[in-house]
Computed example of a mutant assay.
Amino acid sequence: MPMIRCLVVDDEPLALHIVEDYISKVPFLELVKATTNPIEALTLVQEGNVDLVFLDVQMPELTGIQFLKIANGKAKVILTTAYPEYALEGYELDVVDYLLKPIAFDRFFKAVQKAQGILQPSAKPVASVESAPQSDFLSDFIFVKSEHKIQKVYLRDISFIEGLKDYISIFTSGERIITLQNMKKMEDALPERHFVRVHKSYIVSLNKIDSIERSRIWIGEKIIPVGDTYRDQFFKIIDGKNI
């Protein structure tokens, strides 16, 4: 079975690097090029050298939506952006999937499995993220904007996330990272087998939970409430790990 030829287009070099790294972890993907130049990328697509494009929406020379319209279906596209308001228009233009930044590997892998099902319908799918080489929770990470820098955060280091009015706080064992982000977007970016929403204001790492008493979770000295909306799903997950 031939590899799926991939092109990454984003005006942020750091975002390019993240998707390049993720592509290298998936056995059926091959990186053709990663570029900040959408015009160059469009030429590659029109020449038929690409099967799948990871396309940023907000670019100065040519937006992702404009790119899609010009490409006219000559390659399948997965949109990557920090702006959820573009999702509807993207789906109307028949994109494979829509990834909100920061992108976690689990979510990326689900999107490329969907693309493989379209591009290689007879291929035997990789059953799970665990089956993909190097897709290890210990080495997976996200990038978040904090103050005037973009900070790399390893998923293994996150204890819990607290949502406040206009931003969220990511608590690791050694620091608190504040970023302008909403809880829904962060929840979607994190692998669900390791992180769970337990309250409108809290996401916790299952690996970091020390104890649970009734509707309260202890992570170190922090006590986190389990909200009524999330209680049944949370305890269903916990019951599945009981011995």
Rank of each mutant, 00 (worst) to 15 (best):
Ile4Leu: 10
Arg5Gln: 14
Cys6Glu: 01
Val8Phe: 04
Asp10Ser: 06
Asp10Arg: 01
Asp11Lys: 12
Glu12Val: 14
Leu14Arg: 15
Asp21Ala: 12
Lys25Cys: 14
Lys25Met: 15
Val26Glu: 05
Pro27Thr: 12
Leu29His: 12
Val32Met: 14
Ala34Lys: 11
Ala34Cys: 10
Thr35Glu: 12
Thr36Gly: 11
Pro38Trp: 08
Ile39Ser: 02
Glu40Met: 01
Ala41Lys: 03
Leu42Trp: 04
Gln46Ala: 07
Asn49Glu: 14
Asn49Lys: 15
Val53Gln: 11
Phe54His: 05
Leu55Trp: 06
Asp56Leu: 10
Val57Gly: 03
Gln58Lys: 15
Gln58Pro: 00
Pro60Gly: 08
Pro60Asp: 14
Glu61Gly: 09
Ile65Ala: 03
Ile65Trp: 11
Lys69Trp: 00
Lys69Asp: 09
Ile70Leu: 12
Ile70Ser: 04
Gly73Ser: 12
Gly73Glu: 07
Lys74Ile: 02
Lys74Thr: 11
Lys76Met: 14
Ile78Trp: 11
Ile78Pro: 08
Leu79Gln: 04
Leu79Thr: 07
Thr80Glu: 02
Ala82Pro: 05
Tyr86Val: 05
Leu88Glu: 13
Glu89Arg: 07
Tyr91Pro: 12
Tyr91His: 05
Leu93Pro: 06
Leu93Glu: 10
Leu93Met: 13
Leu93Arg: 08
Tyr98Trp: 01
Leu99Arg: 04
Pro102Gln: 06
Ala104Asp: 15
Phe105Pro: 01
Arg107Ala: 06
Arg107Asn: 11
Phe108Met: 06
Phe108Val: 04
Ala111Phe: 00
Lys114Ser: 07
Lys114Phe: 02
Gln116Gly: 05
Gly117Met: 01
Pro121Glu: 03
Pro121Ser: 03
Ser122Thr: 05
Ser122Arg: 11
Lys124Tyr: 02
Val126Thr: 12
Ala127Gln: 08
Ala127Val: 11
Ser128Ala: 14
Ser128Cys: 09
Val129Glu: 13
Gln134Gly: 00
Gln134Trp: 00
Ser135Gln: 05
Leu138Gln: 14
Ile142Leu: 10
Lys145Val: 05
Lys145Asp: 13
Lys149Asp: 11
Ile150Asp: 06
Gln151Val: 15
Leu155Ser: 04
Asp157Ala: 08
Leu164Pro: 02
Leu164Asp: 13
Lys165Thr: 07
Ile170Arg: 10
Phe171Thr: 15
Thr172Ile: 09
Ser173Tyr: 05
Gly174Val: 02
Glu175Leu: 01
Thr179Arg: 12
Gln181Asp: 09
Gln181Gly: 01
Asn182Val: 03
Asn182Ala: 07
Asn182His: 10
Glu187Arg: 11
Ala189Tyr: 02
Pro191Trp: 00
Glu192Leu: 09
Glu192Ala: 14
Glu192Gln: 15
Phe195Ile: 10
Val196Trp: 00
Val196Met: 01
Arg197Ile: 10
Arg197Glu: 06
Lys200Thr: 12
Tyr202Phe: 15
Ile203Arg: 08
Val204Gly: 13
Ile212Phe: 08
Ile212Glu: 03
Ile219Asn: 03
Gly220Arg: 03
Gly220Leu: 04
Gly220Gln: 03
Phe234Cys: 04
Lys236Leu: 09
Ile238Gln: 03
Asp239Trp: 00
Asp239His: 06
Lys241Val: 12
Asn242Cys: 12
